[in-house]
Design a protein around this nucleic acid. Structure first.
Lengths: 248, 248
DNA sequence: CTGTTTAATTTGTCATACAAATAAATCAAA
DNA sequence: TTTGATTTATTTGTATGACAAATTAAACAG
């Protein structure tokens, strides 16, 4: 049953996020019925109009299902619109669950090397500039002890720029999800104690390959980046098939 | 400007689809402003509540953008939620435009072989059964002239079953889009005059490979299926990198 | 016990009013 | 004249109350 935290739930965004997290977090389980709209509105102290707006939102994200008279039910995870950026952000807590994290990394393994390969073919001047700029900003040197630390924002922007440069409308869509995912995977891999140098080399390999219009090299470089990440997090290999261009 | 067809637009679904097609079809162009909600409601002869519901729907699909006082504007294609099944269906008309069709086939080339590979590793008994059942139903023989004709529904179900068997939450999401896409690409490739036999062989190759837990074979088989499709439609090769397991 | 009818519940739609936000227009001052 | 603040008008956002439509559950007749 739903019980509210004190006072913090005020506006539409709050309510939506609160409910979404209840569902994704498992406090509201599959097939559980959410109270009718009137009681529900009263519970949050808002109008039924607003609650309906919230529920419509969650419905479109696949988190709930509504039927006349039967009410509003929670749907199962297969129905959730996981590629939606908000849904993915709300799902951050699930990253500790292996299946979820594995699915996410598999997605990246499948999509990003190909995106890099396509970018090598199609990137225009502004794409190239964006990619190289972000590469340049990825690494903060000059730290005490000469450590190389990672600039998360630039790292994300680097990957995002490559996905955009792929010129594929659908990959760009997935890119939104990957971007959100990056925040979390980067966070996880930063907790581990890694030599960022290896990762740096791989990233550079991707950049130069794209600049040289070498799609296979870009592909291989991106595989390298991702395999690093996977190793850092400490997962097993996944069954995704990667072409071998290690010689390039 | 918006002008309505006679009489056919009655309920919410109609209105939503009508507007969506106007936007996707280009009759309503990027940044064009849609009339305010009250006039708009009057135009369709429905309440403002309903129009707001429709607009909220289109907003969440990325087709429009709303701001207080400025109104409702059409967004550009990069913002459209193309992986949404409805959006993709409404976009069927764009399939004649090369960029769109190419993006779609690239997506399939990137995702489906990998899904097949994963399915070979992870498919359980019911997955296997579903895949093989659909393969069995894909081909209507015994037609006059001994032609082999394609059962579109079973074809789609075959691909869908493989994607599901991949066990990857995110790929399954994309699978919804791919499924919708299949309707159209199959339609296009059926217009061409093809020997379905070749395609039959490739599909069988995928099936047996999955049954034999041979992920590389499944990958290669699916590549074969898709390259057939691409050739049938008459497109150029795309720059997607495919591993070569043709010997398997 | 079975099939039909009735009643109750819940979401869906409508109409109206007002709040909040923002762009455009007006006006004041340098 | 130009600039900056102030007012006004427009449009979306929220609230409220009423009724429609759909569907489950209960009551009832055979």
């Amino acid at each position: 049953m739903l019980c509210l935290p004190e006072g913090t739930i005020t506006n539409k965004k709050n309510i939506t996020e609160y409910l979404a997290r209840q569902i994704i977090g498992g406090q509201l389980k599959y097939n559980e019925i959410i109270p009718n709209e009137i009681d529900f509105a009263a519970k949050f102290g808002v109008s039924r109009t607003m609650i309906r707006d919230v529920l419509k939102n969650l419905e479109m994200k696949g988190l709930i299902e509504r039927k006349t008279n039967v009410g509003t039910r929670v749907r199962n995870i297969q129905s959730w619109n996981l590629l939606d950026e908000e849904v993915l952000n709300w799902s951050a807590g699930l990253l500790t669950q292996n299946r979820f994290l594995l699915s996410l990394l598999e997605l990246r393994l499948i999509v990003e090397p190909q995106a890099a390969a396509l970018a090598a073919v199609r990137a225009n001047d502004s794409d190239l500039q964006l990619i190289s700029e972000n590469f340049a900003h990825m690494w903060n040197s000059g730290m005490p002890g000469n450590e190389v630390t990672l600039n998360t924002e630039a790292d994300i922007a680097f990957h995002k720029a490559i996905i955009k440069a792929s010129g594929n409308l659908f990959i760009s869509q997935i890119g939104g999800a990957i971007q959100a995912a990056l925040h979390h995977t980067i966070y996880l891999s930063n907790k581990a104690n890694i030599d960022h140098k290896k990762s740096l080399d791989c990233h550079r390999r991707v950049l130069t390959a794209i600049e040289n219009r070498n799609s296979e090299g870009a592909y291989a470089g991106m595989c390298c980046v991702l395999q690093n990440t996977i190793a850092d997090i400490g997962l097993q290999s996944t069954g995704v098939i990667l072409s071998d261009f290690s010689g390039m």
